[in-house]
């Protein structure tokens, strides 16, 4: 009687790992640059399609394909910030929202034009079907476990990068006071671009795991954005470890909601988010 619920709880925690990956990049860019990239989800889907091309057209292994995508993701994020977003950042938040919103629509429809509306998936080979038996008839997917471990590792690495390295200190400095940074010769535009580059590396990593875990199509971006957004707000703005907690909460909510009635999966996640927003707007683990 209890076993299916425990099973769903476990699946939800593991799903939380994937959701954390969606959120880390958004958390970083939102925490540092004080704006939310509305195209975040669409960039994840764009990276998924890049992986699809690399694995099907070139026959590459998904891991190799992801490793190839990451440096390009960094350069893309760096360039996007330096040459487009930097022109509107700091003037008025409205403009950044509108530019990233426009990008979101362009990417979504560009993918639709290029690949059609079909649902796609990247094959993970044997890893996809391998399971670990935990007794009592509970099985968890090996790939899902890997994803969760990778998510924890990603948060840990980002945390080290931000709090233990020189570039991390610079990123936190511009996040604290961008005008002061400019006054002492820290070039905030460059540091923003590096932060966006790092954010896009996490987008590439998230795409690597998502493209094997779930189906995707050109219109999948907004759902990913909303999940990433909810995870960031649930965890507490700017808190990386909070994102892991937020991801797990959202994963469990969706998983349990889906066990009760499959059509309630998405709605259960949104409702938990709105409830937390109502009673604890600062999130579960606020940074300050």
């Amino acid at each position: 009687m209890l076993v299916p619920w425990i099973n769903q709880l476990l699946q939800g925690i593991l799903l939380g790992g994937l959701y954390t990956m969606f959120a880390t990049g958004l958390s970083l860019s939102a925490g540092v640059m004080r704006f939310v990239n509305i195209a975040h989800g669409d960039f994840i889907v764009l990276a998924c399609f890049a992986l699809l091309v690399l694995t099907t057209a070139l026959g590459l292994n998904p891991v190799v394909a992801t490793l190839i995508v990451l440096p390009f993701a960094f350069l893309f994020g760096f360039g996007l910030q330096r040459f487009l977003l930097q022109r509107v950042v700091g003037q008025n938040v409205l403009l950044v929202i509108l530019v990233t919103f426009g990008l979101s629509i362009i990417i979504e429809n560009g993918l639709l034009e290029g690949f059609g509306a079909d649902t796609r998936k990247v094959s993970g080979g044997w890893l996809e079907t391998a399971t670990v038996a935990l007794g009592q008839g509970i099985n968890v997917g090996l790939f899902q476990v890997f994803t969760f471990i990778a998510a924890v590792a990603l948060v840990a690495v980002l945390d080290l990068l931000l709090y233990r390295t020189g570039i991390g200190a610079k990123i936190r400095a511009v996040s604290d006071d961008v005008a002061a940074a400019d006054l002492i010769g820290l070039s905030s535009g460059r540091i923003y671009a590096v932060a966006m580059g790092i954010s896009f590396v996490t987008v590439g990593i998230a795409a690597g795991f998502m493209s094997i875990w779930t189906n995707f199509d050109p219109a999948s971006g907004p759902t990913r954005l909303l999940i990433a957004f909810e995870v960031v707000v649930l965890g507490g703005l700017g808190s990386l470890w909070g994102s892991l907690a937020g991801g797990i909460v959202l994963g469990i909510a969706q998983s349990i909601g889906g066990q009760w009635d499959i059509t309630w999966q998405m709605l259960a996640g949104h409702i938990i988010f709105l409830l937390v927003l109502a009673v604890r707007p600062q999130g579960l683990f606020p940074r300050y």
Binding site: L94, L226, F229, L267, I271, A278
Partner: peptide, 21 residues
């Protein structure tokens, strides 16, 4: 009452979540 707890860009996506719900 819900989305006004969020600011600017967060508020924008908050309204989207409400619409989705």
């Amino acid at each position: 009452a819900l989305v006004f707890r969020l600011r600017t860009a967060y508020l924008a996506i908050g309204t989207w979540v409400v619409a989705e719900v």
